[in-house]
Simulated scan of single mutants.
Amino acid sequence: MAQAAEAPTKLSQIAYQRFKEALFSRQIPIGATVSQGELAELLQVQTGALREAMQLLEKEGFLTVLPRSGIRIVKPDMSHLKDCFQMRRALEGEAVRRFAERVTMGELADWRARHERIIDLAHGGTVESALIERSTEVDQAFHTALSESTRNPLMISAHVHMMEQIGVIRLDNMYMLSSLAIIQTMQEHLAVLAALEAHDADGAAAAMDAHLARAMHRAMGL
């Protein structure tokens, strides 16, 4: 009996994960409206499991269930974008201060080297698709390290959700990640690292806030 009770939850978790994988791999276009049957077929899951997963996905803002009209996949607007970055600025301002308390000079040197390597690749004419992949790995790892340094499960969970929302924003055609934008991002991270190397937590927090403000403008196409 216990196994039977757990099965729908496990199946809904599979549906939930497959939806996110399909969304971020662009198999599901943002802003599209699909039927429950079409989505279940795409994800290769049972409709019951999908219905359970959709409840959480709707709560997290990835889709909207339209009565008798299907399922609308989220398409972030400017208001949502601003809300996401406002939340990130609040979370990461605190995170960088906690990071300053725990990070070693050796770790900072490693982070500096990783960022400078991306800048060298950008200046060296690395194929843009490869450059975007490499830079995204460094960017996400850096922000994740900051978040995890808080050692606060609630803040870490909120940050993960915000990063997913930013990921959806980046699926939109309006968000174009260029070599110039990558260099700017890495240089802004280096400004944070420079303040941390100088044991200036306030300066690091200010540099992070400036970075996220500029990142929001880049996401808006400004």
Rank of each mutant, 00 (worst) to 15 (best):
Y16I: 02
A206M: 14
A207N: 09
E41T: 14
G93V: 02
R102C: 07
E52D: 14
S149D: 03
I156P: 06
K10S: 06
N173T: 11
R151I: 04
Q27F: 03
M220Q: 11
L222D: 11
D110F: 15
A15D: 04
Q46D: 13
E41Y: 15
P67E: 03
E41C: 12
Q55M: 14
A100I: 00
T144Y: 15
I182D: 00
M78Q: 15
L193G: 02
T104M: 02
N173C: 11
A130G: 04
A204Y: 02
M155D: 01
D110H: 13
D83N: 00
K75A: 07
G106K: 05
M208G: 02
I30P: 14
E58N: 04
N173S: 09
S149K: 02
M174D: 05
A191H: 07
A100D: 12
D139Y: 13
A15Q: 01
W111K: 09
D172G: 03
A201F: 09
G37L: 15
R112F: 06
G221R: 00
W111T: 12
F85W: 00
D120F: 04
A206Y: 11
L63K: 08
L50V: 04
I73Y: 05
L91N: 04
E58I: 01
E38N: 09
R89M: 08
H199P: 02
V65W: 12
G167S: 09
M1S: 05
L171C: 15
L146S: 07
M162Q: 13
E107Q: 08
T136H: 11
A145G: 00
I28A: 05
M208V: 10
R88A: 09
M155E: 00
M186Q: 08
E101T: 05
S147T: 08
R98G: 09
H199Y: 14
H123G: 00
V65T: 11
S135N: 02
D200G: 04
N173L: 14
G61E: 00
T64N: 06
M208E: 10
E133C: 08
E60H: 06
E148Q: 10
D77M: 07
R151D: 03
A49C: 05
K20I: 01
G167M: 01
Q184A: 13
I30A: 09
R51H: 01
K59D: 03
L43M: 11
R18S: 05
I28M: 06
I182R: 03
K20W: 08
V45M: 00
L63Q: 02
L180N: 02
F142A: 09
A215Q: 04
D77P: 10
R18H: 06
M186G: 02
I183H: 05
K10C: 14
R151Y: 06
H211N: 08
A122E: 01
E41A: 12
Q36C: 15
M208F: 14
A191L: 05
F24L: 06
L50S: 04
A145S: 06
T150E: 00
T47G: 04
Q86D: 02
Q27K: 11
S178F: 07
E197T: 15
R214A: 06
I119W: 03
G37K: 15
S35V: 09
M54V: 01
L222K: 12
Q187G: 11
Q187C: 10
H161A: 12
K82P: 01
A210M: 03
V74N: 06
Q55H: 15
G124Q: 03
I182Q: 00
Q55T: 14
I28Q: 07
A109N: 07
T136M: 12
L108S: 05
A7W: 13
L23V: 01
Q27H: 15
